[in-house]
């Protein structure tokens, strides 16, 4: 490691510290040894400018991507969750949109959220799904001729390729309506107490179509089948997985397949069909 590299590694660790570096004796000693002071600021005060910007910039990015979580928690608990999260993760992607990738999983570990924890986790999963599908790669729509060209005896081995702009979410709380309400309250600058909803489970496709994001509610069996297909399972095996998960027969799923496929094709969930070798 070069001298510059060693210096940069030390600075990186200091900039990720949660507390003001001007009160940090180790940071002060490091700064005095390696950094210059200006006429107006000491060396450690200059280092602190970058540390403060690290937290402010990343907090601002999470505020932008997770307005629903912020609305549930209120300022004080939001600050606690975000600062704990930033102290626990190392941003590695150049894309600030990736910063929230672990936010829901982190909230799951926060016992202090109490009864709100599942609600917060659901909202974080929903809002990160928005971030992912918002600028996911564009896919070419499914060529209907490709479906028609699949031989009848090959359907069992057919893998349906789903749109990169599709995410499937099984939610425990009605966070879609709650998020809408939170955004509307913010527009009205309404600071009255927010009524949090009771649990209400649902299965949803979060999907980008024609540059906008849509939430489509799915029947549980359709959700299970689409999830299995999204994992790359061929249709035959995906039907078995979905039937097992849903406690129904494969035959009963078969009766729904045509209708589901027509809907999924119309919405653009499926963008290609590939026959996998047996």
């Amino acid at each position: 490691m070069t001298d510059a590299a060693a210096l940069q590694a030390r600075i990186t660790t200091f900039l990720r510290r949660r507390k003001d570096l001007t009160h940090d004796e180790e940071a002060r000693r490091f700064a005095e040894e390696h950094l210059g002071a200006s006429e107006r600021l000491s060396a450690v005060e200059q280092l602190e400018i970058y540390r403060e910007q690290f937290y402010l910039r990343h907090t601002a990015s999470l505020v932008e991507d997770f307005p629903g979580v912020g609305g549930i928690l209120g300022q004080s608990d939001w600050d606690r969750l975000v600062w704990d999260y930033l102290a626990s993760v190392t941003p590695t992607s150049f894309d600030l949109g990736d910063l929230g990738a672990g936010f829901a999983a982190f909230a799951e570990t926060c016992d202090w959220l109490g009864e709100r924890r599942e609600l917060v986790v659901d909202m974080a999963r929903l809002e990160y799904a928005h971030t992912e599908v918002f600028d996911a790669p564009n896919a070419t729509p499914l060529d209907p001729g490709k479906l028609g060209a699949v031989p009848d005896d090959a359907w069992e081995q057919a893998c349906l390729v789903t749109d990169p702009g599709l995410r499937l979410l099984g939610l425990r709380y009605p966070v879609l309506a709650l998020r809408r309400a939170i955004l509307e309250r913010a527009e009205r600058a309404d600071t009255s107490a927010l009524a949090l909803p009771a649990p209400k489970a649902g299965c949803f496709a979060v999907h980008r179509r024609n540059l906008a994001i849509f939430h489509d509610e799915l029947a549980p069996n359709a959700f299970a089948l689409l999830s299995a297909l999204g994992r790359g399972e061929p249709l035959g095996r995906a039907c078995e997985s979905a039937a097992r998960d849903g406690g129904v027969s494969v035959e009963s799923l078969g009766a729904e397949l045509e209708h589901w496929f027509a809907t999924w094709a119309a919405h653009g969930y499926v963008v290609d069909v590939v026959i996998s070798p047996k």
Binding site: E64, L176, L183, V206, I213, H215
Partner: peptide
């Protein structure tokens, strides 16, 4: 006001998205 300044300005992000509202 002490706030974070994004390099290169604001991202175009999904934060303000109102799903199911945009016309297709």
């Amino acid at each position: 006001e002490r706030r974070g300044f994004p390099q290169g300005g604001p991202r175009e992000s999904a934060g303000a998205e109102r799903p199911n509202e945009a016309a297709e």
